[in-house]
């Protein structure tokens, strides 16, 4: 099994993801420079957090046009598993692989802290090892994580059960996201984006290891196929 992790200029969680995937889950990884194409036949592609291109226009807006993204989009359209964390989630939305957009946090400030999350759909490759309504404690770290989608889009998300992860309640919602949405998948469920950082909560020595289940789900899905 081999995962590809894309490094955009300004990515800063790419090495964290590599460390967790390789050291904790013992899965081989390739770091893919954003100017390259996807060469190998990867089992999953991970888009890391950070400030791609300094987030200078909008988070993810410029990275979405990096050369590598054409092949990431092809990969996703062919059913390949794509996980976008934080900035990676923003890039997936800019690229049109996930619906919605991010506004600046309601309090206008960067926020880094642990938040309580709740699994809303465990029938995805990224959450199959979790229970529905299970509560997770995973940190967020962003300034533009205020998820927005119009009413029609929101209805679609609900009808298709694309809301995978929510902040537990209003007081756990760190950014003002509509309906406390923290992570969504596409209709086919092979593309998943979330604002919290599961790679920061995947080892016992860190303050929480609740993020492990996301990677475990992904790996078990790839090993065994859909439940």
């Amino acid at each position: 099994m081999r995962f590809g992790i894309v490094t955009f200029p300004g990515s800063n969680c790419d090495q964290d993801l590599r460390y967790v995937v390789e050291e904790v889950f013992e899965i081989k990884t390739d770091m893919i420079w954003h100017k390259e194409d996807l060469e190998n036949n990867y089992n999953a592609i991970l888009l890391p957090g950070g400030f791609s291109y300094g987030d200078y226009l909008r988070s993810g807006a410029i990275a979405r046009f990096s050369p590598v993204m054409d092949s990431v989009i092809d990969f996703a359209n062919q059913g390949g598993l794509v996980l976008g964390i934080c900035n990676g989630f923003q890039i997936l939305m800019e690229a049109g692989l996930l619906p919605g957009a991010m506004k600046v946090n309601n309090n206008l400030k960067f926020v880094c802290k642990h938040v309580k999350l709740q699994i809303k759909n465990n029938q995805t490759p990224f959450t199959e090892k979790l229970e529905r309504d299970q509560i997770l404690n995973i940190p967020v770290a962003h300034q533009e994580g205020n998820f927005y989608i119009d009413d029609r889009g929101l209805d679609k998300l609900k009808v298709n059960d694309q809301i995978v992860l929510k902040y537990l309640n209003d007081s756990e919602n760190p950014n003002g996201s509509i309906e406390n949405i923290a992570g969504i998948c596409n209709k086919k469920r092979n593309v998943f984006g979330l604002m919290p950082h599961p790679e920061r909560a995947s080892e016992d020595i860190l303050s929480s290891s609740d993020g492990k289940k996301i990677f475990e789900s992904l790996i078990s899905f790839l090993k065994e196929g859909v439940n």
Partner: peptide, 19 residues
């Protein structure tokens, strides 16, 4: 001082054992 340090990313690089 949480008002201050919650504005700082204090976990990136995943080494922070005591926050």
């Amino acid at each position: 001082k949480s008002y201050i340090y919650e504005q700082y990313d204090h976990m990136v690089q995943i080494n922070t054992v005591v926050l």
